[in-house]
């Protein structure tokens, strides 16, 4: 028995083609499913998912936090939720969201916590003293480990090399 969708359809597009692609899905009556973001070196990789019953297709493209994306909440009203969330967590700019919370959707302690390379995160990191950032990050993770966040990635790798493999 298959557990998940087969085949998995990922289409790589340019961010300028996003609006046209979404209009095409809307015209064919496809349902909007999700917008999700992943931090990569060049910026944020966004994934827009649409479905028509069983077929599920994903549009994939990378964008940096300076370029503004057109909102699709006029075609799909419930997009406002995901666009506000992506803006708050990753720093991606959207223009024309139907209900725009202007960065106040989630109450986050540091700006764009999932994307430390965004302009907002860098500005706040240079502005705030190091002790504050440590306290803010420690509130996200509930483990009393001595060597915490600024060298977060290296310390977890050191620990993993000491542990036996999973």
């Amino acid at each position: 028995m298959t557990q998940t969708e087969k085949p998995q359809v990922f289409k790589d597009i340019e961010h300028a083609q996003l609006r046209k692609q979404v209009e095409s899905y809307h015209g064919r009556g496809w349902r909007f499913v999700n917008i999700s973001g992943t931090t990569v070196e060049e910026g944020v990789e966004l994934l827009y998912s649409f479905s028509d019953g069983l077929p599920l297709e994903n549009l994939r493209f990378t964008i940096n936090t300076e370029t503004a994306l057109p909102s699709v909440s006029d075609l799909y009203p419930n997009c406002f939720f995901f666009e506000n969330e992506t803006h708050d967590l990753f720093g991606v700019q959207f223009t024309g969201i139907s209900i725009d919370f202007d960065g106040e959707f989630y109450k986050v302690a540091v700006p764009t916590p999932m994307n430390p390379h965004s302009a907002a995160a860098k500005a706040s990191a240079s502005g705030k003293p190091a002790a504050d950032k440590r306290a803010a990050d420690a509130s996200v993770v509930d483990t009393p480990v001595a060597d915490e966040p600024a060298e977060g990635e290296e310390s977890s790798d050191k620990k993993s090399s000491k542990k036996k493999g999973a």
Partner: peptide, 22 residues
């Protein structure tokens, strides 16, 4: 009616970088 959420955001998706996949 204008909705607003965000009162119990815990940032659990960021924990993937701290807890291994098992």
């Amino acid at each position: 009616a204008i909705p607003q959420i965000g009162f119990i955001h815990r940032g659990l998706e960021k924990l993937v970088s701290k807890k291994d996949f098992m």
